[in-house]
């Protein structure tokens, strides 16, 4: 945001003469719009990408017609279709919660984009508690999901909502613990600080250190579960719960859930990139933001790859993975990271 303000001050004539309120407010608005654009654009590309990825894994072509080149406009066409569809609210639904739920889910994903460090200066707000903020705000989604499941007044939706709540809360714990292994050596919760700690060549990335390497996998699995992707997609397990918490949703409200899912996929990939893959660092022939997005997209691809390869776990097995496997591992990792940090401090 500081960067935006600088650009505006330097490039836009007469910006200094504006009232001070506007001087502060305009960059905020611009940053918001940019974020919103990103949140809207990322799913568009990701959904098309997922369709193509899955299609080629399954010996199909996927969308080929809309827009000409490899059906690139398919998602846009689908979005327009969803916008034009009739808005149906079940008669027995809790109308207020039913309408509110998709917005809450979407807002959770959207708000987290604020602290993503796309580049050295491309960050809306470098909060000094950035990591904590992401962990907190992205949990807003689960509230929305439970709202959706409850308000639909549908047993499948309720099942989906309950499963989602249990799953997301369970996986949040090992994930956040594993993130701590990065925070401990850096000594800061700021996203930029974490990225800066990984400067100076590829091998300074946290993924190449033993403790944080293991933490990376814990975070990857945990976040995969938090965004309800296969093999952890039990809240919307189509073969069991029809569509889980969004069974009763259609039209644009459904699209919000859909967009939020892909926005969240990108979000958790970006988080993992920031924490373990050196963020915007990369060889100099490409600018930082490009590296950042490339790395995040690569992780998104892995998520898709898993989805189109693996079957789905059962509820109890899912809980087993979280509480009996990931949680102990992450505790050990935190201990190891702390000991390592102390030892390094003590060493001459």
């Amino acid at each position: 945001m500081e960067y935006l303000r600088e650009v505006l001050t330097q490039q836009v004539a007469g910006y200094d003469q504006l009232p001070e309120v506007l001087q502060i407010f305009l960059p905020m608005l611009l940053a918001c719009l940019l974020c919103l654009g990103l949140v809207a654009l990322v799913p568009l590309v990701a959904i098309w990408g997922e369709r193509k990825v899955s299609a080629h894994m399954q010996d199909r072509l996927g969308p080929m017609r809309v827009g000409g080149w490899h059906g690139w406009a398919q998602t846009i066409a689908d979005g327009v279709k969803l916008l034009l569809k009739e808005d149906i609210i079940p008669a027995q639904a809790d109308r207020l919660l039913f309408k509110l739920a998709p917005l809450v889910v979407f807002a959770g994903g959207f708000a987290a984009f604020v602290v993503l460090p796309f580049g050295e200066r491309f960050i809306v707000s470098d909060l000094n508690i950035g990591v904590l903020y992401i962990a907190a705000i992205s949990s807003l989604g689960v509230v929305g999901i439970i709202m959706a499941g409850w308000a639909s007044n549908n047993k499948y939706a309720l099942f989906g909502g309950m499963r989602a709540a249990a799953q997301i809360v369970s996986y949040e714990i090992p994930t956040v613990l594993a993130i701590l292994t990065v925070v401990i050596p850096v000594g800061s919760l700021s996203m930029q600080e974490i990225v800066k700690a990984q400067s100076g060549g590829v091998f300074n990335w946290f993924i190449f250190e033993p403790v944080t390497f293991l933490a990376f996998w814990v975070v990857f699995l945990g976040t995969l579960a938090e965004v309800n992707r296969t093999p952890f997609d039990i809240p919307e397990a189509e073969s069991e719960l029809v569509a889980g918490y969004h069974t009763e949703y259609s039209g644009m409200r459904f699209a919000f859930f859909f967009l939020a899912e892909y926005a969240n996929m990108f979000l958790v990939s970006a988080l993992a990139t920031t924490l373990f893959l050196g963020g915007w660092h990369g060889p100099g022939f490409l600018p930082g933001p490009v590296w950042f997005i490339l790395k995040a997209v690569a992780l998104v691809f892995v998520q898709m790859w898993l989805r189109w390869t693996l079957p789905r776990l059962r509820v109890d097995q899912l809980m087993h993975v979280s509480w009996k496997v990931l949680l102990p591992i992450s505790f050990i990792l935190v201990l190891a990271a702390g000991t390592l940090a102390l030892w390094r401090e003590g060493a001459p």
Binding site: S54, W308, P311
Partner: peptide, 16 residues
């Protein structure tokens, strides 16, 4: 059956 268990790709391979 693969689809019931949550794996979509074998389904399409089989149908092919």
């Amino acid at each position: 059956y693969a689809m019931d268990i949550g794996s979509f790709t074998p389904f399409l391979h089989c149908f092919r």
